[in-house]
Every structure is written in structure tokens, then in C-alpha cells.
């Protein structure tokens, strides 16, 4: 076997990457996990998680992250705060270029997840942190007795809109369809909440104000009617985009930009795996990310055993 700095490099420290790290560390692989920001990924901004088993009352995203992080640290997983700039995967010993150096490895697990999608409407960038937010649990309390708008109709949008009703006196929920996509139980709660006013078949077209968000423009896509609404804040949950900028053309992506991987989490390149939200998975949940991470770590371990022979 050719020499390499590591047997396994895990890129990304959300639930999928941390679980892969947990299994790899327990298997005593020579492993490093590279995290660009902080461990936890999108779970860090998740408010209350009710569908992750083992927590009958639910668990807050940050608490769950803290528990997983403590667990991996118990097995001495090496986590480095750094960013992957590019990868060279053509040789059996793969090269990963970080912001300050290049490391070599036999296997790679891509666990970079996804980021909230931007709508791309005027005002969205300018007013970020000035009324535009993607994190209701962080910023909801700044909107006590205020009027806020939320955009989206999926689980996150509906759950976080419900959370915002604890603070705001009114929440406009803007959704481009005429019904919600969220789980039935969340739909029921939202529809029964008299602080939420639904703007069906509608899209957000602009965010305006002087120093802070003061009003938004909304258009009904069926009738074409446009209106302006005075609001103090605007929260958006309109889906996600995979974090794959460093991948270039090293592994195959699907038409939406997610990494294609098989049942063993293996990508188009042998020894390179993809797990969690960045993968072309049918479901993006903590529960599924955890499973992906475990499978990839074991497959990577088998791969390493094979090349040692």
C-alpha cells in the first residue's frame, strides 16, 4: 500500500460526518474530519427536533449536536477547523487541498451537507441580519410583538413559523402553492393558529426598508395581483442547495447538483463516499444522515482493508 497522510478524510461535521467519524475512530482508522465552520451543520440552527428517536420530549438542535460532539471526542476523533478548496481523486492516493496545505488519503467521505437556498429577490442580501433571517430560534425573540413574513411550505417553514408566533403578533406565511407540503401534524397546528395568515399561491418579490426591513412585496402567481405588506422581519425556508463547490468534476453529480452514491455510499470514484444531505438521497433528515455516515465509515474501512492486502 502506498503511503498517505491519512486512511480517511471526512469533509464536513454535520450529523452524517460526525457519525462517520465516530465509527472510523472506534475502528481506529487514521482519520481526520475537516469542518469549515462549527460541528453540527444545519442542526445547529434547528429549533426543536421531534422526529429523532430516543428523545421522547424532543431535543433542541444545539443540544443534540453537543451530545454527538462529546461522543466523538470520547473516541479522540481529530476535528480540524479548515476548508477544503479542491480535491484530486484520480490516483489511488487522493489529494485534498485545504486552505493552508495539501493532505493525502486513501479514502474520502464527503459530508458537506447543504445550505438554505436564497430566493434571489432584491433586498435579501442587503437586509441579512437587519430583519432577514434563516434562523427563527436565533432571531425570533428580536421580533416580539412585531409582524413578520415567512416564505416556504415545507416542514422547516411551517415549524419555524409556528415558533415565531410565540413572539410575533402576526406571521404572514407566503407559499407558492395552494397547500402546504409539511407533515400533517405541523399543517394541523399551523392552520389552527390564528396568528398565522396564509398567503397562498404567492411569491415574495422584494424586501424594502431604510436601515432595516420595513416592508415586502408579494405577488399572487395565479391572479398576478401585487401588494406591499409592512413587516419587521422576513424569514425564508425555500429549500436547500448542496455544498459542492470544491468538488468540480471529480465525482458524478445528479441534475440538481447532489453527489450520486450507491447503497454503500460509494460515489463514481472508488474509495470516495458521500453521505447526508449532499448525497442524492430520497430523504434529508438527521436520522437518515446518521445511517449514511455509519455505512460509509464501514465501507471505507473495508476498502482500506482490501488495499492493504
Amino acid at each position: 500500500m502506498k503511503e498517505a497522510d491519512y486512511e480517511l478524510v471526512i469533509i464536513g461535521g454535520g450529523p452524517a460526518g460526525l457519525t462517520a467519524g465516530l465509527y472510523a475512530a472506534r475502528a481506529k482508522l487514521n482519520v481526520i474530519l475537516i469542518e469549515k465552520l462549527v460541528p453540527g451543520g444545519q442542526v445547529v440552527i434547528s429549533g426543536w427536533i421531534e422526529n429523532y428517536p430516543g428523545f421522547p420530549e424532543g431535543v433542541s438542535g444545539p443540544d443534540l449536536v453537543q451530545k454527538i460532539t462529546e461522543q466523538v471526542k470520547r473516541f479522540d476523533l481529530n476535528i480540524e477547523s479548515n476548508e477544503v478548496v479542491s480535491m484530486d481523486l484520480f490516483e489511488p492516493v487522493k489529494k485534498i487541498t485545504l486552505s493552508d496545505r495539501t493532505i493525502s488519503t486513501h479514502t474520502v467521505i464527503i459530508a458537506t451537507g447543504a445550505s438554505p437556498k436564497k430566493l434571489g429577490v432584491p433586498g435579501e442580501e442587503n437586509f441579512y441580519g437587519k430583519g432577514v433571517s434563516f434562523c427563527a430560534t436565533c432571531d425570533g425573540p428580536f421580533f416580539k410583538d412585531s409582524v413578520v413574513a415567512t416564505v416556504g411550505g415545507g416542514n422547516t417553514a411551517v415549524q419555524e413559523s409556528l415558533f415565531l408566533t410565540k413572539f410575533a403578533k402576526k406571521v404572514y406565511l407566503i407559499h407558492r402553492r395552494d397547500k402546504l407540503r409539511a407533515d400533517a401534524i405541523l399543517q394541523e397546528r399551523a392552520l389552527a393558529n390564528n396568528k398565522i395568515e396564509f398567503l397562498w399561491d404567492s411569491v415574495l418579490t422584494g424586501i424594502n426598508g431604510l436601515t432595516h426591513v420595513e416592508k415586502i412585496s408579494v405577488q399572487n402567481i395565479k391572479t398576478g395581483d401585487k401588494k406591499e405588506l409592512p413587516v419587521d422581519g422576513c424569514f425564508m425556508w425555500v429549500g436547500i442547495v448542496p455544498n459542492t463547490h470544491f468538488i468540480a468534476d471529480t465525482v458524478k453529480l445528479d441534475e440538481y447538483g447532489f453527489v450520486i452514491a450507491d447503497l454503500n455510499m460509494e460515489t463514481s470514484v472508488p474509495g470516495v463516499f458521500a453521505v447526508g444531505d449532499v448525497r442524492n438521497t430520497p430523504l434529508r433528515q438527521i436520522a437518515t444522515a446518521i445511517g449514511d455516515g455509519a455505512i460509509a465509515a464501514i465501507t471505507a474501512e473495508n476498502y482500506i482493508e482490501n488495499i492493504k492486502k
Binding site: 462549527v38 453540527g40 434547528s46 433542541s60 438542535g61 444545539p62 477547523s81 434562523c135 436565533c138 425573540p141
Partner: peptide, 14 residues
């Protein structure tokens, strides 16, 4: 920061 803010807790060690 605030105690209820997950990302705040996450960046504190940094």
C-alpha cells in the same frame, strides 16, 4: 449572544 441561540453556542469555542 443569547442562551437560546444555537449558532451562538456553536461559535463560542471559536
Amino acid at each position: 449572544w443569547a442562551p437560546w441561540c444555537g449558532p451562538c453556542r456553536a461559535i463560542a469555542p471559536m
